[in-house]
Design a protein around this nucleic acid. Structure first.
Lengths: 195, 195
DNA sequence: ACCTGTACTTGACACCATGTCAATTGACAC
DNA sequence: GTGTCAATTGACATGGTGTCAAGTACAGGT
């Protein structure tokens, strides 16, 4: 059976995950991952055809282990649109640092690899739906600011909470994680909730 | 004399610029640039030691030709902080699409090349000063929202108007340039100007 | 006319990471 | 034992960057 198969596979994924987080997505080669997983470089290719697919599989793996779905789903239980918006921003904002390394590596591959591009776009589409649901809830309550259409608000919210924006504020500007999340929440409310 | 020297140099820079804008920063090799400039690949290395330095020189070249300084400086003539903020956001926001290709290539190199990283960081520092000056002007007028320190406001403004955010909104979300700039201005006012 | 320096060319090569291929080992299952 | 399957070793192609050496073409000064 492929029990051994699956075990090696997850060992590779965990090694990739660990290295990517440790190096923030930079300078992690296939050979590094192989070494960390305790197997030969070629063996990695027995499980993942390309680096891009390994990276994509790693994000899925992380999502599964961290159960991102459950964390984001929790925001749906909020009663009002405003609460829901805050809950979603909080949930996603606090998830970013946990996937930063992997995300960054995948983003860096976008220019050269179409599979990576598609995979990341798909992932962002899923996230966007969460933002959109929160904005729609706001709209349903009649609380969406007249300054923005639901689509525009969703677009802006996604940009505000993009991995790149998080990276700039926390890494370059030195913001704490709390500072980032709190400001993101406050901005979302100030911008999108009608006075 | 190095008159011929300088002419070839600018021919390389212009070729790089053109290609980078045409390809949005992706898949532009040294050999492509050489071909576009009408010289051999090796000749490029006579003028620029590495790809990173060529990219850096290209951004400086573009800045010079487009006279970014003058465009950004114009915002200083505004009378009030609010006007100054709007003017600066407008000036920079409208400059982004003109440098997008080059900027993107430089950003993509950051992970692998420290020189590129330093160069881009330096450039962003200069830009940041412009944002900070606008925020300080606002503060001087007593119009800075109590929700943010001047530093925080500057950080957020920089992120809001980062090349990455521009890219996401205009490329991925399909916003028009006007839409981007207008919303950026409106957000800056709504967020940072005291009620 | 003859050097001399300079810009550029041609062609070869080292390096490094990705990805491929072939031959071999070792274990476990039947 | 024999077959199967994961993994190993080692060699190799590819593509892009950067280096090196030898040669060409042309300018200016003498």
């Amino acid at each position: 059976m492929s029990r051994d198969n699956a075990e090696t596979r997850t060992r590779i994924l965990n090694a990739a995950w660990e290295l990517l987080e440790a190096h923030q997505g930079k300078e992690v080669r296939m050979s590094d991952i192989a070494k960390a997983a305790g197997i030969s470089r070629q063996a990695v290719y027995l499980h993942f055809p390309t680096r891009a697919e390994l990276l994509v599989a790693t994000t899925r793996h992380v999502d599964e282990v961290k159960d991102v779905d459950a964390r984001l789903r929790a925001s749906r239980t909020a009663n009002t649109g405003v609460e829901r918006l805050a809950a979603f921003v909080e949930a996603w904002g606090n998830y970013i640092p946990e996937i930063h390394g992997v995300a960054r590596a995948l983003i860096a591959m976008q220019d050269s690899d179409d599979a990576a591009k598609l995979a990341w776009a798909d992932r962002m589409r899923g996230l966007r739906q969460g933002f959109e649901a929160a904005i729609r809830a706001l709209e349903g309550d009649g609380d969406l600011s007249a300054d923005y259409s639901a689509t525009e608000a969703t677009d802006l919210l996604s940009s505000l909470l993009s991995v790149q924006t998080w990276e700039q504020l926390t890494q370059t500007c030195g913001w704490s994680q709390r500072q980032f999340v709190d400001h993101a929440k406050a901005m979302a409310v100030k911008l999108f909730v009608a006075a």
